[in-house]
Every structure is written in structure tokens, then in C-alpha cells.
Computed example of a mutant assay.
Amino acid sequence: MTILVTAATAPAGRSIVEQLIAAGRNVRALTRDPKEANLPESAEIVAGDLSDADSLKAAFQGVSAVFLLAVVPGFAPAFLAAAREAGVRRIVFQSSGAIVDGVEEQPNPIAAFHAELERQIRESGLEWTFLRLEIASADPLQWAFDVPGQLGAGNVVRGPYGQAGCSPIHPADFAAVAISCFTGDEHAGQVYHLTGPVSLTHVEQIELLGEALGRPLRYEELEPTVARKAISPYAPADVLFETWEKHLGTPAPVTDTVERITGRPPRTVTAWAADLASTLR
């Protein structure tokens, strides 16, 4: 069985590819630019884009299961039609923990986008598993405030709400759950909520990262209005700030999904920080 991994150069997609290769499985990695993918040599790397139906038809040939990470509006009808035509059996979809079930209107655009995709996948006739990643577990501080870029300039990370709780998940743990869902029939039609193992404040995240890097890092709190203005042009500020405000002085959610699905404990936050540090080096 060949598994197609979309967004194969993103942290979770890359780890899925690496773990499948290590297990001797057939994997096809979909990326816009194969020359820049830097994936294991034994992976089959193909050029493609979710918005390009022709590239998807070629990528789906001989594929039985697909890992889907989607940020492209309007791609789903052509994507699902091409998957059915090629004989794909199952889709494992990285969805959002922001979704609220049983409501007519979702609470924010991220939830609405992913809920609509879930609906279309459910109605496609394909088997599916939805991995709802909590926003507080998706390392939002790292990408919204460009922590790598800030650390390239010094030992200070500037962002809002230093005491907001997050529960970052190691990409390899998310990947391990996705891989389990490719093969076990018991995962078909299931919705799993994923988080990291521990709630950490923004300050604690940067302290752990500093220990892993061997650098005296510190977190400098930005006034929320200033911070919101800084990221609004390129990140969903309303959703992120709502999440952080909700977890000011309150731990972020923590689930047992990783251990329940994979049969082993999740990686520690120390391991999370050490592996993040290795990418920064």
C-alpha cells in the first residue's frame, strides 16, 4: 500500500514521511518544489498542488491512503473526486480543535474552514479519520511571532500574554497518530483531539528552548494591541488571541490521544524543546 502525504515538507508531514520510510512502507510525498524538499532519498517525491487537479490525478495513482493538510480554499471537490477515481480508500485529515460540533455557525473562520472540509470528506464516500489539533497545541507562538527569526537576532523573544497556557505537541507524535490511523480499521470514522502532554506558558516555552540551546533566552511581553497589529497582516490574530486569553492563568487542554492511539507515552516537553532547538541550529 502506498500512502500519499500532502504538505510533506511541513513538520508533521515530514515526520510522517520519515517514520513511514523507517518502517519500510511505501510513501509518496507531495510538494510544490521537489528539488527543495530535502526528504529521505527513498521517498517518492512528486510535484503537485492541492489546487491543481491534474497534478493530483497523477499523484493519486496506486495510492490507498492520504494524509491531508489543507490551507487552500475551494480545492476539496476536485481533490475528493480525483481520490475516488484513483481508488483511494482512506483520508486522514489534519483538522482543527476549534470546531464546535452540533452548532449552525462555527465560532471563527479557522473552525468554519475545517468544519466544511470535514463535511465534504464525510459525504465523499471515502473512509476518513479526523485529527483535530488544538490551536493551543499547534505551536502558535513559534510561527505567529517568528521565534526562529527573533532568536536569529538575539536572546529575546517578544510576544503577548507571557502567562498564557499552551500544550505543544511534538510533530513526531502527531505523525505517529496519523500513521496508526492509516491502517487500523478501528480508526475509520473517528474524530480524535490531539494535544501535547503538558500545559506550558509562553515564558516556560522560551525557558525550555533556551536550556536546549544553551542560551540565556527571555520572554519580553508585548502589549496586546501592539502584538495584534504586528501579526494581523499574516496570521489569524483574532483566533490566536482568543485562545491565549482563554488560557491566561488556566492550563491549556491536554488529552491522552497520543498514548491511547499509538500505545506509547508522548514525547516529553524537554524532547520537544530539544528537537525544536536542533532545527534552529
Rank of each mutant, 00 (worst) to 15 (best):
V71S: 11
V71F: 15
V71Y: 15
V71W: 15
V72M: 08
P73E: 01
P73T: 01
P73L: 04
G74K: 03
G74L: 06
G74M: 06
G74E: 06
F75G: 07
F75K: 04
F75Y: 05
A76L: 12
A76E: 08
P77G: 13
P77T: 03
P77M: 03
A78H: 00
A78I: 07
A78Q: 01
F79G: 14
F79Y: 00
L80H: 04
A81P: 01
A81E: 07
A82I: 06
A83I: 01
R84Q: 10
R84F: 05
E85K: 11
A86H: 07
A86Y: 03
V88L: 07
R89E: 11
R89W: 00
R89D: 09
R89A: 10
R89T: 09
R90K: 08
R90G: 13
I91L: 08
V92M: 12
V92A: 12
F93M: 10
F93L: 09
F93K: 13
Q94R: 07
Q94A: 15
Q94M: 13
S95R: 02
S95P: 13
S95F: 01
S95D: 10
S96G: 15
G97V: 01
G97N: 03
A98Q: 09
I99Y: 02
V100N: 05
V100A: 08
D101P: 08
D101W: 14
D101I: 14
D101C: 08
V103H: 04
E104R: 13
E104A: 12
E104I: 02
E105R: 10
E105Q: 11
Q106R: 05
Q106C: 02
Q106F: 04
P107S: 08
P107W: 03
N108C: 06
N108Q: 11
N108G: 08
I110T: 04
I110H: 11
I110A: 15
I110Y: 07
I110P: 12
A111H: 13
A111P: 11
A112C: 11
A112V: 07
A112E: 15
A112N: 09
A112F: 14
A112K: 14
F113M: 13
F113T: 03
F113H: 05
A115M: 06
A115P: 02
A115R: 05
A115F: 12
A115L: 05
A115G: 04
E116S: 09
L117M: 12
L117Q: 04
L117W: 11
L117P: 04
E118L: 09
Q120K: 10
Q120N: 10
I121E: 11
I121D: 12
R122C: 10
R122G: 05
R122P: 02
E123N: 06
E123A: 03
